Simulated assay, not measured.
Amino acid sequence: MASNLRAAQPFTRFVALGDSQTEGIGDPDGTGGHRGWADRLAERLAAADARVQYANLAVRGRLAAQIRSEQLAPAVALRPDLATVMAGMNDLVRPVFDMAATLTDIEAMVTGLRATGAEVVTFTYPDIGAITPIARPLSGRIRAMNAAMRVLAARHGVTLVDFEPVAATTHRLVWAEDRLHLSPLGHELVARAVADTLGIPGADASWRQPLPVANLGLDALIATEWRWAAHHFAPWVVRRVRGRSRGEQVYAKRPTLLPVHPQRESAAQRQGGEH
């Protein structure tokens, strides 16, 4: 599942770039903020080496071009020895998707971070058409984007966590009720996947194991789909039509490198509320 499976080495300066998934939406931290897979990965790194410092520049709603323009330069300035780039899904789900432009932005982030000497991790995407039926027309886009990401990762010698072949990544339990964001279980799965791919002490390949299948009856399935469409899909469409983003007036939750376990910020210190 990785293009660059490697022996473990100590990382002490971890910087995460991305959108809502990397920010941690869907994984509440108990104080009004968000935890997320990058926080969970940082905790695993710190368990192996107490010197670890961690910054998270991700902001919900950002397209790949915005992540590049807003987060790449600050990330490079932090001189990471480990950086993660999770970008492109917000582009992919738009009615008009320019895959070449999205890949150009991701490649610029990868090469910019590699130039600092950092180990760079990027990802393929799960098939969201398997998560929600209404998204099945996007499955072809996802497969094409994933194939291109494998080529990009190999060309630049970066670590690729390949989620597409792993059935657990499309399991309902891995996704929050809105089906746009990972659940706490999903964020934990991603953290475990990255840790395993990097060979972090204590990590293993159990994240690849299938999760129990939940068989819903037809009536329950229809009711579930209608409820999701009314409470989550329709509001998302309205925001897209209005050109609005939940990332407006939201800033990086952790813009500088800090020890992994400082006192968590209070909800009042976070910008933008729950979404």
Rank of each mutant, 00 (worst) to 15 (best):
A100S: 03
L182S: 02
T132S: 14
G33S: 14
A191V: 10
H34M: 14
A203P: 04
A176F: 15
D29K: 14
L160H: 02
L57P: 02
Q66A: 13
W207L: 00
S20Q: 00
A42D: 03
R242V: 09
V76I: 13
V174I: 10
R143N: 11
D91M: 00
P80R: 00
R192S: 15
Q209G: 07
Y125W: 15
G18R: 05
E164M: 02
D105V: 05
R68Q: 15
I67N: 07
L113G: 00
D29W: 10
P255R: 00
Q21P: 12
R240L: 13
R179M: 13
G186H: 06
I106N: 05
G36E: 03
D29I: 14
E164T: 03
R35E: 13
E248H: 04
M86P: 00
F233D: 12
A108L: 00
T170M: 02
T84V: 08
Y54N: 06
M109A: 03
L138Y: 07
A55T: 09
D127P: 07
E43L: 07
A118S: 06
T170K: 02
R192P: 06
G33H: 11
E43T: 08
G112L: 10
D39C: 11
L198K: 01
A87H: 09
A203T: 14
D91I: 03
D105I: 00
R227V: 05
R35G: 11
Y125N: 06
I131P: 01
A135V: 08
K253P: 00
T132M: 14
R6W: 09
N4I: 07
L17Q: 02
D27A: 10
T197R: 06
M86G: 07
T124Y: 05
A167V: 08
Q249R: 09
A48D: 11
T122K: 02
D178Q: 03
R179D: 12
V110A: 01
A48I: 09
P201F: 03
G217K: 05
R240S: 13
P262W: 05
R44I: 12
T132F: 11
I25R: 08
E188M: 03
N90T: 08
A47W: 06
A153K: 03
A65I: 05
V15N: 00
M109V: 09
L92I: 04
A46G: 13
I131Y: 09
K253Q: 02
V260H: 06
R264C: 00
A8V: 10
A8L: 10
R239T: 10
L218M: 15
M89S: 02
E265L: 15
L198C: 11
V59Q: 04
A65Q: 04
Q263N: 03
T84I: 07
A48Y: 11
E119H: 09
K253D: 02
L103G: 13
P262S: 01
Q263W: 01
A191S: 14
G186T: 03
R114Y: 05
H187V: 04
S183I: 07
Q263I: 04
L218C: 11
F14W: 01
R40F: 11
T116N: 05
L182G: 06
L57I: 01
F14R: 05
E248Y: 04
Q9K: 15
P126M: 06
R141A: 07
K253H: 01
G33F: 09
R68W: 08
A252P: 13
H156E: 08
V166Y: 04
A2C: 15
G186V: 06
P10A: 15
H34R: 13
I134Q: 11
E177K: 13
H181I: 08
G117H: 12
A203L: 10
D219S: 15
E177S: 13
